[in-house]
């Protein structure tokens, strides 16, 4: 099915009060594609994720998921349609164990909904999926540890774990490696690569090494507008991008 659009944004706009944060974004991501969104701080990348995943209502524009209009749907409806996201600021169930966190991500997708008649410890399929996910994110040995006491890197891995546990076909990751050390980042990239195998991935990322290693295409978001969407090489060579973003980054680094 490669080729059909998994996510389509049509002239999406968002204002907070009078401030225009997203100013007419058009974007189309094919099924199975990995798209990275880069851009300076405050460009509106997280806001864009919040719009796609239903956390904020749009000011105007349309969003389609696999051809279906999802504009204005609440987050849980969008999630049930096969889109799952992670958060820039770790957003997990702090008082629950690692296993239970993952299980929360599994239950709906296996059809248990709001059931109050299934004993959850006897659900073999839930158990299998949760154990599998923990294995993949490398937290199997921390199974019964309370999520709140995990290390930062482990919490980030758990964040991804909850996101992928439900088997969604479209995954949105918001700065999954932010705040990690070099080695942790390398591990995280490997993790992301394996767990999103065959899925549509959109990720916000600051680390250029990660972006160029993982992404099929890159979109550059500046002041709420996408100024370029292209292959990594083309984006790197794009003078407008260098001017607006990469150049700015160098200046920032120098300052």
């Amino acid at each position: 099915m490669n080729g059909a659009a998994a996510i389509e944004l049509l002239d999406v706009r968002k204002q907070f009060g009078a401030t225009r944060i997203i100013q007419g974004v058009n974007l189309s991501v094919r099924q199975g594609e990995r798209l990275a969104i880069i851009g300076p701080n405050g460009a509106g990348k997280s806001t864009l994720f919040n719009l796609i995943s239903g956390r904020f209502p749009l000011t105007s524009g349309r969003i389609r998921l696999n051809g279906q209009d999802i504009t204005g749907l609440p987050p849980y409806r969008i999630n049930r349609l096969g889109l799952s996201r992670s958060f820039q600021v770790t957003n997990i169930f702090h008082r629950m164990s690692v296993y239970e966190n993952i299980r929360c991500g599994v239950l709906w997708s296996l059809g248990y909904k709001y059931s109050f008649w299934h004993p959850v410890n006897r659900l073999r399929d839930v158990q299998r999926r949760a154990e599998e996910t923990m294995e993949r994110i490398g937290l199997a040995r921390r199974r019964n540890v309370q999520a709140g006491v995990l290390s930062y890197a482990e919490q980030r891995a758990l964040e991804i774990g909850i996101t992928i546990a439900g088997g969604a076909e479209v995954i949105l990751l918001d700065e999954p490696t932010a705040g990690m050390s070099r080695t942790e980042t390398a591990q995280a990239v490997e993790l992301i690569r394996t767990v999103t195998e065959g899925k549509t991935l959109i990720m916000v990322e600051h680390d250029m090494g990660v972006v160029f290693g993982l992404a099929d295409r890159i979109s550059v978001l500046v002041y709420g507008e996408v100024i370029a969407t292209d292959t990594p090489e083309a984006v790197r060579a794009n003078p407008a991008v260098q001017e607006a973003y990469l150049g700015g980054m160098h200046k920032e680094a120098a300052a």
């Binding site: 956390r55 849980y76 049930r80 957003n91 929360c104 239950l107 709906w108 709001y114 546990a165």
Partner: peptide, 8 residues
């Protein structure tokens, strides 16, 4: 909030 993003 997180619960809303796992389908509930």
């Amino acid at each position: 909030e997180r619960a809303e993003f796992v389908g509930y």
